[in-house]
Design a protein around this nucleic acid. Structure first.
Lengths: 345, 345
DNA sequence: CTGTTAGCGCTTTCAA
DNA sequence: TTGAAAGCGCTAACAG
C-alpha cells in the first residue's frame, strides 16, 4: 500500500499529540506556535491523511454513487458533465457504475453502492421497477433518478411528453397532416411512450383528418437506417425520429434513395445533438439540456443529503431548434432559410 | 449515516464471535452449522459490511482513480466504456475526476487521488509535463497515462504518428499532391504534432512536388466551420481534418458554399466516429478503437498493481476506413462507390 | 475449527 | 489550549 506516514509520525516530529495534529487538520483550537510546528512536520514528512480511517470515524464518505446505463453516449456524457460540475465544488466525488442498459444490473449497482456507504446515489435509469422503489425507500442512502420517472421516487428529468407535444404542435402549424413516428420500444416509458404520446396528442387533437403512423426501431443510426424503407412507405409528409440519431439514420437512407429533405419529405428529431447542425439539411429538433439536468439532479441530491425539504420532482425546460429539415406546407411562408450553420453554437 | 448493524451485532445474534463472522464473510474455516447460523443472522439484521472499516484494515481500496479531460466527448465515453469493462469483473470501481482540459487540474486530481488511497490511477492526459512525471514516480500508487505519451511514464495510446502516416500514404496513392491539414494547437503533442507530422512525412517523403498547407483550428465543429474559408483558399485537392469533427465542420462549410465533395475537393478525418458514416458523403477516416485503448489501459494498470513486469508502453492498432469523401486523381480507378451506408456498423 | 486479542489511522470526548 | 484515552468496524495473528 501507499500509506507510510501517519498522524502519529507527524505528532512525534512536531512534539505534540495526535489530537493536536488532528485539530490542526480540522477545525481550530491550536496555538499559533504549535500550528507552525505541525505545519512544518507535515511538509517534511509529506503526510497525507488516510481517507478510509477518516471516513470510518466521520461516517461521511463524500462520495456519490452514479449508476449509468452506458458510457459511450453523448447524452450520458453531458449528464455526467453537469453532475460533476456541481459535485466537485461541493467536495464530493463520483463513484461510477455501469448498468449496461439492464434493470437488474441497475438494482445490483444500487445495492452495492448502498452497502459501500456512499452518501447518495444518482441513477440514470432505463426503467424504474417496483424493486427500484422498494430499494430506494428501504435504504437510508438517498437515491435520485433521472432518465425515467416514477411517482414514488424522487427524480429530475426531461419532460418527454411536453417535448413530444411541442413537436406535434409545430408540425401541425406547418401544415402537416400525416406523420410517421420512428420510435423505440415501449419498454422505455420516457422515450418509447411519453415522447410519442405527447406528439400524437398535440398533432391529432381535434383533427380527425390528421394521422400518425408508427415504425419501431432502435436507438442507433444503423437500425434507423434499416427501417428507412418502412418509414418511407407510409407516405407521410414528415418523419419524426424519437431521437436525433434515429433521424440521422433515416436522413442518410433518404439521401441514398434520392429523396430530398425537406422538399420531398420533412424530418425532425429530439435531443438537439450538435451533429444535427452540421448535417445537411440541418435537423430541426427539440433540444434537451442534459448538462442542466445533471446539474439539477446533483443539486437536488445534495439538498436531500443536507436534509432540505424535497420539493417537487422536476422536469426540465426544452428548447425548440428550428433548422432546415421541415417544409412549410401552409404556403403562407417561404421555406425555412438554409442559412449558415443554423443554431450550431 | 446508514450503518447501524455491525459485525458485532451479527456475532451476538448468531452466538459466535466476531472473527467467525468475519471468516464467514471472507475465506473459509467455519463449520457448516455456524455457517448456517451466521447466514441467518445476517439476513435477519440486514447486515452490510462497512466499506471503510474493511479498507482501513486491508489497505486495499479496490478503487481506481480516473482523471478525464472532460465528460461530454464521444472518445472519452468509449475510453471509459473500455475501462469499466475490465475494471468491473476484476472487482474494481472507478472514481471519477475531471481535469477540464487543464494540466494543472490534472496534477491536482492525481494528487488528490493518491492521497485518497486509490489502488491505481488512470489519466487521460492533455499533456504530460515534468511535474506529471515527478508525481508519477514519487508516489507509491501506479499511474498510467493515455491520450498523450512521455518516455518516462507508462502509457497506452493510439499511435498518432502512424495514423498520420497511414493517411498520408493513402492520399498520395490516390494521386493527391497538394493537401491542407486543418489541425490543432501544437500544445497537444499527440494530435497537434505527431498526427500532423506523420501525415506530412508520408505525404511528402521523396516528393518535392508535394505540398502540405496548415490551418489551425479547434476541436469543435464550429471553429472548424469558421476556418472553412481559410482552408478553401489554399487551393489544395484534399483537406485533412485532424479529427472527424473538424472534417465535419468543414464539410458543412463546403456544402453551404456549393463545393461538391469529393468531386471538387476531397476531405478526410481521423477518429472513425460513427456519424462520419451517416453524413454525405460518408467520411473517409482512420478509425481508432478507443474502447480497446480503455481496456488495454485498465488491464495494464491492473497488471502493474499485481506486480507484473511492465512490458513495453504500447500504441494501439488503427483501422483505415475508406468511404466516399476522397476522389481518386490517378484516373486508373473509378470513384469510390457511394454505396449503402459504408462502414457503418 | 473458533474465540481472544490487537490494532489499522483517525477523531473526539474528557480532564487537566 | 492540550494530551490521554476510547473507540469507529473490521481483519488477522495467535492460542486453544
Amino acid at each position: 500500500m501507499n500509506q507510510k506516514v501517519t498522524i502519529k509520525d507527524v505528532a512525534e516530529l512536531a512534539g505534540v499529540s495526535k489530537s493536536t495534529v488532528s485539530r490542526y487538520l480540522n477545525q481550530g483550537y491550536i496555538s499559533v506556535e504549535k500550528q507552525e510546528r505541525v505545519k512544518k512536520a507535515i511538509e517534511q514528512t509529506g503526510f497525507k491523511s488516510n481517507f478510509f480511517a477518516k471516513r470510518l470515524k466521520t461516517k461521511q464518505s463524500k462520495l456519490i454513487g452514479i449508476v449509468l446505463p452506458r458510457m459511450d453516449s453523448v447524452t450520458v456524457g453531458k449528464l455526467l458533465a453537469g453532475i460533476s460540475r456541481i459535485l466537485e465544488p461541493a467536495g464530493y466525488q463520483g463513484l461510477l457504475l455501469v448498468s449496461k442498459l439492464s434493470g437488474r444490473k441497475e438494482i445490483e449497482n444500487i445495492r452495492s453502492l448502498q452497502q459501500q456507504g456512499v452518501d447518495g446515489i444518482l441513477v440514470d435509469s432505463v426503467g424504474i421497477s417496483e424493486e427500484h422503489v422498494k430499494l430506494t425507500k428501504s435504504g437510508t442512502v438517498p437515491v435520485l433518478y433521472t432518465g425515467q420517472k416514477h411517482q414514488d421516487v424522487p427524480y429530475v428529468k426531461i419532460d418527454d411528453k411536453a417535448a413530444g407535444r411541442m413537436m406535434g404542435a409545430y408540425l401541425r402549424q406547418m401544415g402537416h397532416k400525416h406523420a410517421v413516428f420512428a420510435g423505440v420500444t415501449e419498454t422505455d416509458i420516457a422515450v418509447g411512450v411519453d415522447r410519442k404520446q405527447g406528439f400524437i396528442d398535440a398533432f391529432t387533437e381535434g383533427r380527425p383528418e390528421a394521422k400518425v403512423d408508427f415504425v419501431e426501431t432502435g436507438f442507433d443510426f444503423l437500425s434507423a437506417y434499416n427501417c428507412g424503407e418502412d418509414v418511407r412507405r407510409c407516405g407521410a409528409t414528415v418523419v419524426v425520429g424519437a431521437t436525433d440519431n434515429i433521424s440521422l439514420g433515416i436522413l442518410r437512407y433518404f439521401h441514398e434513395r434520392g429523396l430530398r429533405v425537406p422538399e420531398d419529405i420533412s424530418v425532425v428529431g429530439f435531443g438537439g445533438y450538435e451533429v444535427g447542425a452540421v448535417v445537411y439539411p440541418a435537423l430541426t429538433t427539440i433540444s434537451f439540456d442534459y448538462e442542466l439536468v445533471g446539474m439539477k439532479a446533483a443539486q437536488y441530491l445534495l439538498d436531500l443529503l443536507h436534509g432540505k425539504p424535497l420539493e417537487q420532482n422536476m422536469e426540465m425546460p426544452l428548447f425548440f431548434v428550428e433548422r432546415e429539415s421541415v417544409r412549410n406546407l401552409t404556403g403562407t411562408l417561404c421555406q425555412p432559410q438554409p442559412s449558415s450553420l443554423t443554431g450550431m453554437a
